[in-house]
């Protein structure tokens, strides 16, 4: 197990290295020079321009610039924003908590509502099951940004239960500010997870070992928990994981819709302003988080399914 984790971490580091190169190269190749943005249409003397280029190392060869940037990244220096002249690392640090809270909130909603509702629908059947099936079909088709607008319209504008904008401070205030965004962000994933969980539970109910456990006189409650739901969690874990990992990028849409000060909204602004230092840094952070989440899921999967042998290790 430990060897597997170390190997996967190594692979993740390699992926990040190549990704960082690709991201940097893409920004380098982008049309439009950064200094023209820096001077923002003002007419400046060639000397000033040269000094700006020198200050940002814009005249160095590509690989030197990449090496410089990478060295900075490894030491926690993500460079300086081209628009605000602020340190990107500290900018990120101030923005990350909002995104973290938002995605964590959404992840909890996905697990609680998706898995629990899907499992109950699969175990109970009947009208509740039909309602869940219908709800998940519609829920899946609602894009996060429309869910955001819809929720805003109903709960903020019409009912006035939740604030429209901002992330709030302090736990209670934050929860109140982030509830609608988290629901919007989680909604399509909840629909998908509920559907998959329900299907997995229904299939597992029919499994011979479940029928046999019942025929052996094991009480239904125990069979439902130990044999049906537990086994159904195998496919569900993968789907939950994929959906939670996708929150990393999906958060940008919701943050933009609710004007939250997270790194997703920051990324969108940076893209529109061609603030490449910020774009690069956030992209790298997102890829890293995405990779870590996926790694955690693989490990979790191996823990709950004894048949999975991690990297050829003998069990």
């Amino acid at each position: 197990m430990l060897r597997f984790i170390i190997r996967r971490l190594g692979a993740l580091a390699a992926t990040l290295l190549i990704s960082s190169f690709l991201i940097f190269a893409a920004m380098y190749a982008a049309p439009g020079s950064p200094e023209s943005f820096l001077v923002q249409g003002r007419t400046v003397s060639p000397e000033v321009l040269a000094s700006i280029r020198a200050q940002y190392g814009l005249d160095d060869p590509f690989l030197v610039r990449y090496g410089h940037w990478l060295g900075g990244v490894l030491t926690g220096d993500l460079g300086e924003s081209l628009t605000t002249r602020q340190d990107v690392a500290s900018l990120l640090a101030s923005r990350i908590p909002t995104t973290l809270w938002l995605t964590a909130y959404a992840a909890v909603l996905i697990v609680v509502f998706g898995v629990v509702v899907g499992a109950i629908a699969g175990l109970r059947g009947g009208a509740f099951d039909t309602a869940v099936l219908l709800g998940s079909s519609v829920g899946f088709a609602i894009p996060t940004f429309f869910a955001a607008v819809l929720l805003m319209s109903v709960f903020s504008v019409t009912l006035g239960w939740f604030p429209v904008f901002g992330s709030g401070s302090g736990l209670a205030d934050r929860m109140s500010h982030l509830t609608l965004p988290a629901v919007a962000l989680a909604l399509p994933a909840v629909a998908v997870v509920a559907r998959i969980t329900r299907t997995a539970v229904v299939e597992e109910r029919e499994a011979e070992h479940v029928q046999i456990a019942l025929a052996r006189g094991v009480p239904w409650r125990i069979v439902a928990r130990r044999h049906i739901v537990r086994n159904a969690m195998l496919p569900v874990t993968t789907i939950v994981g994929v959906n939670i990992a996708a929150l990393v990028a999906g958060a940008a849409v919701v943050e933009h819709a609710f004007t939250l000060d997270g790194i997703g909204a920051m990324l969108i602004n940076a893209v529109q302003q061609k603030d490449f230092a910020v774009v690069q840094a956030i992209a790298l952070v997102l890829v890293a988080v995405f990779g870590v989440v996926n790694l955690v899921i693989d490990i979790l999967y191996a823990v709950i399914d004894p048949r999975v042998q991690l990297g050829g290790e003998s069990a």
Partner: peptide, 16 residues
């Protein structure tokens, strides 16, 4: 097919 693939044999026997 009769035994739950993710539980140990002891679990199956003891459960009965």
């Amino acid at each position: 097919a009769a035994l739950n693939p993710v539980l140990r044999i002891s679990r199956y026997l003891v459960e009965g």
